[in-house]
Design a protein around this nucleic acid. Structure first.
Lengths: 360, 360
DNA sequence: TTGTAAGCGTTATCAG
DNA sequence: CTGATAACGCTTACAA
């Protein structure tokens, strides 16, 4: 295996200086078109790739940091899948910073310190950063590129933010149930300290309002996104005098809890209870019956977040002016990308009657 | 935020040269104990961490590469969880190289080229490397530290290898079924091009032999690890004249397929069919009923693999002589670590009778 | 045991 | 538009 080529070798081969090669490699505008071409030719012939370590040390890192919660959290792998896919097509490499559950604020900020202090990565993608948002803002203010991917939808005014439309997803899901003829539709919310829980609840209420169905307090339960909480809430709902014909759980895990509750009460899904979840995690399609749920386009979200970050890194001057295909608001000079969510219809829902509106 | 400290600052503060600080930081033996202590004190006081970029450029990278298949493959997150946990406690950072399904041999070796050519990482943890093994051997021969974590159990003679005891897991699972009183126990194998499929099948046969039960060819099906294949195989098995009372599927996904087959045939799990899976992926405990399965200690496997790799990197001279707590064979100067697997009992199995042997 | 000095491969600065 | 030259922060012969 030949010794690794350096920028110097390329320079010699192309008959220019290292500097010029560097300029070409970094897409600098101030290079003669012809020179650029000549250099590129040599670069490609030899499959030359600049050393990440050297670039980083010299101040132009080609390393991207990803700050993620436990990889075992169901949504993460899909997001990272999208992220990795984009990175693989670039000169950048991905450095993983995993924060585990137990880590409290202190450890989180320690990790962030570590990230910055080492000046290793060129930018940071923070996925579901939880409490760290405040700290991330500090970084951003110091000129360090940060993109947040989260569902908390309380965007910092300054950090570019990628999210999905939680409210609308819940709205569409509930609307779907209404169209199937359901009128007693229960909702198991997520914990109220999360913004998503409110957004999804809101979507549910909106859909009911539109259908002129009253929101009945007894049909609203509050879980904590765990299976057992879903089960508990569902047990209460399903033993109501007038039990709901459909239950919309705020996430798939609680929906699975509904399945368990139904089973223990001898009720079948979907024949006697219709169930809808949220997230479309990997096992949703494996459930018995396969779960109708609201899909967040997680891989796309990961992709767009990392693409945004890459652009921020490569054009530090005009960071807040991109057009974006998905849906973009330009608030106080920052970027917010909201991805669409949509209902994935599977077998967990039963049609109660055939209202004409369905045909629409 | 104060300017980042460098090794030079530490040196000044401790009243020694950069060289000495470097030596201390790298645990070199040739430093006076007292000096070392003095330096360490300063280092700790200031929470100093050496620059990964600079170290790497200077020839001692603190970056570890992880080559993984799709993150969305069910076993990966748990493994990576263990990996990340260990890395977090060290000075190293983790660089992710994700290979996606579509990538054929060519792309894989391209990634590997990329990994090496950039001289970025100090070593590589290859998780389920598939076809790349051959190439990995080449790296290893060139003195580049590589550890493989795989279930294919055809260890290269030279690359340290971390795995789990597939045969014994299957053996224990089958033995468990025998103890429950089952005698017509079917097995849905994985595809025969994988070594795991054979290992697990072997465990199944061994357990039956021990119980003096004949292996009946009709009770052996071969799937491809997908849900639908499991379902198909199970449908055949469950419509046999003398249908099995228990089905041992070679992975959890096929076990879920068995659930579907049972349901479509109006058979209940576990009342009419007992089911056991393999892997204990995250959703196994969420299945209805929760699946009895064989657990591979994935996080521990990840942990031990990365620890092994770190040791190889830090002691390049004597790479093949460690003691290991789990179970270690020293074959032809390489290290093989085999983790124990064990049966996780959940609700998917029914006891047919109460043989005395159970009390044992 | 410790220090001096020469890289490691880029990028940035500043002249030409 | 192009090219010297000096960083970047650390490791590692080689000397002392």
């Amino acid at each position: 295996m030949a010794k690794r080529m350096t920028i110097r070798d390329i320079a010699a081969l192309a008959g220019v200086s290292k500097t010029t090669v560097s300029r070409v490699l970094n897409n600098r505008p101030d290079v003669d078109a012809e020179t650029r071409e000549r250099v590129m030719k040599v670069v490609e012939e030899h499959g030359f790739v600049p050393s990440v370590a050297a670039s980083t040390l010299a101040g132009r890192s080609r390393l991207i940091g990803a700050l993620i919660p436990e990889l075992t959290w169901p949504l993460i792998p899909e997001i990272m899948h999208g992220v990795a896919e984009v990175i693989a097509q670039t000169d950048y490499e991905l450095v993983l910073y995993s924060v585990n559950d137990r880590n409290h604020q202190k450890d989180r900020s320690e990790i962030l310190e570590r990230i910055l202090e080492r000046k290793l990565v060129a930018g940071l993608l923070a996925i579901y950063p939880g409490q760290s948002t405040e700290y991330l803002e500090k970084l951003q203010r110091q000129g360090f590129p940060v993109v947040i991917l989260d569902d908390q939808a309380t965007p910092s005014e300054r950090i570019p933010w990628v999210s999905a439309d939680q409210r609308n997803g819940a709205y569409e899901a509930t609307r779907y149930l209404v169209r199937l003829g359901h009128r007693r539709i229960a909702h198991i919310r997520g914990p109220l300290e999360y913004q998503v829980s409110h957004d999804r609840f809101r979507g549910y209420c909106d859909a009911l309002a539109e259908a002129q169905i009253m929101v009945e307090p007894q049909l609203i339960e509050t879980g904590d996104f765990t299976l057992s909480s879903g089960q508990l809430c569902a047990e209460r709902l399903l033993t109501l005098d007038q039990r709901p014909t459909a239950i919309f759980a705020a996430n798939d895990l609680m929906a699975q809890g509904v399945y368990f509750a139904a089973q223990s009460l001898g009720l079948r899904v979907p024949e006697e209870v219709t169930v809808v979840g949220f997230d479309d995690v990997l096992f949703a399609s494996l459930m018995q019956p396969p779960l109708t749920t609201v899909r967040q386009p997680l891989d796309e979200m990961g992709r767009s977040a990392i693409e945004l970050l890459l652009r921020m890194i490569e054009t530090p001057s005009l960071p807040y002016e991109w057009k974006w295909s998905v849906s973009e608001r330009n608030l106080s000079r920052s970027v917010f990308i909201t991805h669409k969510t949509h209902v994935v219809v599977r077998a967990s829902c039963k049609q109660l009657c055939t209202p004409l509106s369905l045909s629409k």
